[in-house]
Design a protein around this nucleic acid. Structure first.
Length: 568
RNA sequence: UGAGGAGUGGUGAAACGGCAUCACGCCUGGCUCUGGACCAGGUUUUCCAGGUUCGAAUCCUGGCUCCUCAGCCA
């Protein structure tokens, strides 16, 4: 089990929380929240936010709320609520009783809206959407005030009540805050608080036909729940002005405060919900849980562990500088976790037949093979059968290997992992193509369990399976989903989809694994020796026809060395 | 050309006026029944120009570059 990496350093958010805790600003309370909109699946970027919010709460003896920010009836769905809860739990976090829905606050939101109207701080605007846009001005020119801005409190109250009562069609009126139409911050130019939308909400049905905007609902939700630190991503920096304007107006200190951090960008993938959705909808991937997807569901199916993902989140840290994280960081965190928890087994992905000519025809030996290398402090082993006909990895034999080759070669020896040394005596080949079709080997009966000496020290131990005992399985190898690091900004005219990696999945159907894998249950993770980490798939596996996904490969330091002396 | 943010090795972060540090990557070597893991060593960094200071990634001035904002999405 991997121990948490103690750095002792605090990121800027934890620094702020510590400052507030020390000063007693919130009476020592720390309450954070993770506020997803249920309109899509969570991805690794959300995982960063989840680890932050739940992590900060946990470290400070506080709590983190799970709140669904469901104020837009058009895109939200219960199925997303369920997937989000599942993903957060899977990642290892618990919101206890603190499950909330912004849609449960609709009545309260209305009361606050009425208060703002009474205070002369909000008004009903009846401009069209187009007019509102025109009146807003641009980043360099101030906006103009709406002709409806000076309506009386009474008229505003009446209009707002009738909006709520359903007297008006969509788009005919909105409730706006009285900000400042010439504000340098565009967000403060009378932000819209409520819009009319005659649409069924997935939780409230037809109860409402006015829905609050994010800028209104979010700060209020935070305040209603007595959130202390409201942590969001950088694109909301400008929105903080509304956040503060509203809460200063409606809540006394100590009220929630918003802080922003840089969202996660990962090389060779995309992180926008919209883009991920389009990959799913256009069938470019098999679904939200396609193992190539950066979604939590995809990574779960891929075999990534919650511990590995949390370790990754911890290692990348958090800051306000936009950044783009290399896939190596993620993969290494996953390997780091799996190294300690995945038992080692033997699988041959691209088999090459080898006949051990001095091994009796009918003989079968069941050899003890440890599940763990000696550097992992775990016990356990299984028996693997050995017979005259075995299968080895095609890539473990080379007829004319480079000088530093430590695997099998004609006339050379190599150890069969947990078994004997074999020597390649003869190469069988297709008479037409010349392709190597098999090897004829001899084995050294004295070499089982014996230390390797002399020239044998310069060889490795290769994985193998007994041909008559091995189980045929399908193995799926994955590679990066895109061919470029930043698919969203790669080509001027091109869509990110033009950079999809056609080799992102490779399906191997002729793989053979040791018989012990017949017991593997969906979700079981293994290290296929010298290949990488693999997980038994729970979706496409069938009895007698298991499917394994490669979670991540093993680092491979081997670079072919100088070629052996050429003979001519 | 408005406002709000951000610039530290190849990547992500730390150092909060005092030897630029950590993780990942990469390169050497050791070890190994995994060319994995592990161990040892190495590689590469403060956006630019001035200034303050004994001393600047850090403070000041000016510039440059990048990101966000003109939805009745969040």
């Amino acid at each position: 089990m991997h121990l948490p990496e103690e750095t002792g350093r605090l990121d800027f958010l934890r620094e702020i929380v510590r400052r507030d805790t020390l000063s007693g600003r919130y009476g020592g309370r720390v309450v954070t929240r993770f506020p997803p909109e249920p309109n899509g699946y969570l991805h690794i970027g959300h995982a960063k936010s989840i680890c932050l919010n739940f992590g900060i709460a946990r470290e400070n003896g506080g709590v983190c709320h799970l709140r669904f920010d469901d104020t837009n009836p058009e895109t939200e769905d219960m199925k997303y609520v369920e997937s989000i809860m599942r993903d957060v739990r899977w990642l290892g976090f618990d919101w206890g009783e603190k499950l909330f829905f912004a849609s449960d606050y609709f009545e309260k939101f209305c009361e606050f809206a009425v208060r703002l109207i009474r205070d002369g701080a909000a008004y009903v605007d009846s401009l069209t959407e187009e007019e509102i846009r025109l009146y807003r001005g641009t980043v360099t020119e101030p906006g103009r005030e709406s002709p409806h801005r000076e309506r009386s409190v009474g008229e505003n109250l009446d209009l707002f009540a009738r909006m709520r009562a359903g007297e008006f069609p969509d788009g005919s009126h909105v409730l706006r805050a009285k900000g400042d139409m010439s504000a340098r911050n565009m967000k403060m130019r009378d932000p819209v608080l409520y819009r009319i939308r005659h649409a069924a909400h997935y939780r409230r049905g037809d109860e409402w036909c006015i829905y609050p905007m994010y800028d209104f609902a979010h700060p209020l939700s935070d305040a209603i729940e007595s959130i202390t630190h409201s942590i969001c991503t950088l694109e909301f920096e400008n929105n903080r002005a509304i956040y503060d304007w509203l809460l200063d107006h409606l809540f006394p200190e100590p009220r929630p405060h918003q802080y922003e951090f840089a969202r996660l960008n990962l090389d060779f993938t995309v992180m926008s919900k919209r883009k991920l959705l389009s990959l799913v909808e256009e069938g470019l991937v098999s679904g939200w849980d396609d193992p190539r997807m950066p979604t939590i569901a995809g990574m779960r199916r891929r075999g990534y562990t919650p511990e590995g993902i949390r370790l990754f989140a911890e290692r990348i840290g958090v800051d306000k500088a936009n950044s783009r994280v290399s896939m190596d960081l993620l993969e290494d965190a996953i390997r780091d976790d799996l190294n300690a928890r995945a038992p080692r087994v033997m699988a041959v992905l691209r088999p090459l037949k080898a006949t051990i000519v001095n091994y009796p025809e009918e003989k079968v030996e069941w050899l003890e093979a440890p599940y763990w290398p000696r550097d992992i402090d775990r016990e356990g082993s299984r028996k693997v059968p050995l017979s005259r006909e075995i299968l080895i990895e095609r890539s473990d034999f080379l007829e004319r290997p480079p000088a530093d080759w430590i695997r099998l070669r004609p006339g050379g020896e190599v150890r069969l992992r947990s078994a004997y040394f074999i020597r390649c005596e003869e190469v069988e080949r297709d008479p037409v193509s010349g392709e190597v079709t098999g090897l004829r080997c001899t084995y050294d009966p004295e070499s089982l369990g014996a230390p390797s000496k002399g020239s044998r020290k310069k060889t490795t131990a290769i994985q193998w399976v007994s041909a008559p005992h091995a189980l045929p399985v399908e193995v799926r190898l994955y590679d990066r989903l895109f061919t470029v690091a930043d698919p969203e900004n790669a080509g001027d005219e091109k869509s990110f989809k033009d950079f999809l990696n056609p080799g992102s999945i490779e399906i191997l159907k002729e793989c053979m694994v040791e018989p012990s894998l017949g017991q593997a249950a969906a979700g079981d993770r293994f290290q296929f020796l010298r290949h990488g980490y693999f997980v038994a798939d729970g979706v496409d596996s069938r009895p007698g026809a298991p499917v394994f996904h490669r979670i991540v490969d093993l680092k491979d330091r081997y670079r072919p060395g100088p070629p052996a002396k050429e003979r001519r």
